[in-house]
């Protein structure tokens, strides 16, 4: 994830925290950036706060709000009043969320400047994280243009022997809630909205599945290629990697006989539901036909009677 960012050591010890990034955060930053570059100045950098929850060693970053800057350009400082007011506002509606860090858009870390902002956030949270998002996405890049940094104190000769904070890269994974997943699915793939027929629903559902399975297949193909190349001696053998591959392969099949059984029961239930619904449908149709029959038959009888009378 952390590639060739020169100003920062690629991997540090860090605090050992695990960061889970939610899609809302990414889209929020994107919204902030788009808004600013269209209304204020093009490709200006935007700053904001990251909100989240920490349970144990896992930090979920789930929401953001923007920060306001005082002053111009390089000398800009974070508006502390604005920050605390915003923080209170979010606290009112999301009592569980705390400020866990801050974000900025831009290509690379600017140590001096970013450490200054980092210090301001540090007044709210003891060890904030810094999220950097590159708004210019490289063609062919397959990773999100996002990097996460923590600070760590390090003694360096430049600061004259006194420990000073430095940014170190931190790892993150993308995580989402069920509701979040559905919404992302919907906007990311533009599932037909509004009045969808059942056929459309089925197609979109199956397309989603198909894409996911394809992705899985592609990933497996990559692993297979690598292993083959190792066997043929084209690339050096990585034993750690091989062990991981083998443990992955050994986990199949995942389900035990119990799972199999449960699945069977579920399957039967679903079939039963389908049958029932079809039967209800048949009933409804039948009801309609009988009603129509009744109506026509009765009027005919009535007219016969009338004719008979005359």
């Amino acid at each position: 994830m952390e590639d060739d960012r020169k100003s920062v050591p690629a991997q540090g010890e860090g605090s050992g925290l695990e960061f889970k990034l939610h899609p809302l955060v990414i889209i929020n930053i994107s919204d902030h950036f788009t808004r600013c570059s269209l209304n204020v100045k093009e490709n200006g950098r935007v700053l904001g706060c990251l909100l989240g929850e920490q349970t144990g060693r896992i930090v979920h970053i789930t929401n953001t709000f923007e920060m306001r800057l005082e002053g111009e350009n390089e000398e800009a400082k974070v508006d502390r009043n604005f920050l605390s007011a915003k923080k209170e506002q979010y606290k009112t509606v999301f009592p569980d969320l705390e400020v866990v860090g801050w974000y900025r858009t831009g290509g690379e870390v600017r140590e001096v400047e970013d450490l200054r902002t980092h210090a301001v956030i540090g007044e709210v949270n003891e060890s904030p994280v810094f999220l950097l998002m590159d708004s210019k996405i490289k063609e062919g890049s397959r990773d999100l243009p996002i990097s996460l940094y923590e600070t760590e104190l390090r003694v360096s000769s430049a600061s004259g022997g006194a420990p000073s904070p430095h940014f170190v890269g931190a790892k993150y994974t993308v995580d989402s809630l069920e509701a979040e997943r559905i919404a992302v699915d919907q906007v990311a793939r533009i599932v037909p909205s509004g009045k969808t027929s059942t056929t459309d629903q089925l197609t979109s559902h199956m397309t989603g599945m198909q894409n996911a399975v394809k992705m899985l297949r592609d990933r497996i193909a990559v692993i297979l290629e690598t292993v083959k190349a190792m066997r043929d001696g084209k690339i050096p053998t990585d034993h750690g990697l091989l062990r991981e591959v083998s443990s992955l392969a050994r986990r199949l099949p995942v389900g035990t006989s119990k799972v199999d059984h449960e699945l069977g029961a579920d399957y039967d239930d679903t079939l039963m539901m389908a049958h029932l619904s079809v039967m209800t449908k048949g009933n409804a149709k039948m009801h309609e036909v009988i009603n129509k029959m009744n109506a026509t038959y009765d009027s005919r009888v009535a007219s016969h009677h009338r004719r008979g009378l005359f």
């Binding site: 899609p23 990414i26 889209i27 994107s30 919204d31 950036f33 788009t34 708004s135 996405i137 890049s141 397959r142 990773d143 999100l144 243009p145 994974t173 993308v174 989402s176 069920e178 997943r181 992302v184 699915d185 919907q186 906007v187 990311a188 533009i190 909205s193 509004g194 989603g208 599945m209 894409n211 996911a212 399975v213 992705m215 899985l216």
Partner: peptide
Amino acid sequence: LEVQYFKSGLDANLFELLWNKYWVSTLSS
């Protein structure tokens, strides 16, 4: 009213990249 969704150019690109990490949850949901 008819509901339509829209996203910015940056959003669209991010969503595409997000999908690279996301297919897992689609499959496991």
